[in-house]
């Protein structure tokens, strides 16, 4: 099961990197989403996979009676998802603002902050 997930992560990273290399900012954003979910899966796999044993302690017990799934990676993934969600929403808003203000989402045409040397900057 772990090795299957690792393969999935590999494919997601490859696809994410491919998309992120595009000049189009929307493609970049989609690549980022893939990559960020791949990172979450890495943490998930790192916590070892345990099927269908939620880490809940039965009533009257102090500790789980049977080996249960590792809850810590799930808590970390939840945190990472929350943060990733905020960052992606922000980046999307930024791309929208860019499209409105600069009329392009092609990063090759964004030369305002770094004008090419022949544009009479000096």
């Amino acid at each position: 099961m772990e090795s299957a997930l690792v393969l999935v992560i590999g494919v997601m990273v490859a696809a994410g990197v491919y998309l992120m290399l595009a000049a189009n900012l929307l493609c970049y954003l989609f690549g980022l989403i893939l990559l960020s979910n791949a990172a979450n899966l890495v943490i998930f796999v790192a916590g070892r996979l345990t099927r269908a044993v939620p880490p809940l302690i039965p009533k009257g017990q102090e500790a789980p009676v049977v080996p249960v799934a590792n809850a810590l990676p799930q808590a970390m993934i939840l945190t990472a998802i929350v943060i990733g969600f905020g960052l992606l929403a922000f980046t999307l808003a930024l791309v929208v603002a860019c499209y409105r203000e600069l009329d392009t989402i092609d990063s090759d045409h964004m030369r305002l902050a770094e004008p090419p040397p022949d544009s009479g900057e000096h």
Partner: peptide
């Protein structure tokens, strides 16, 4: 984040 996942693993 990926590095952290691997450190934890």
């Amino acid at each position: 984040l990926m590095a952290i996942g691997m450190v934890y693993g």
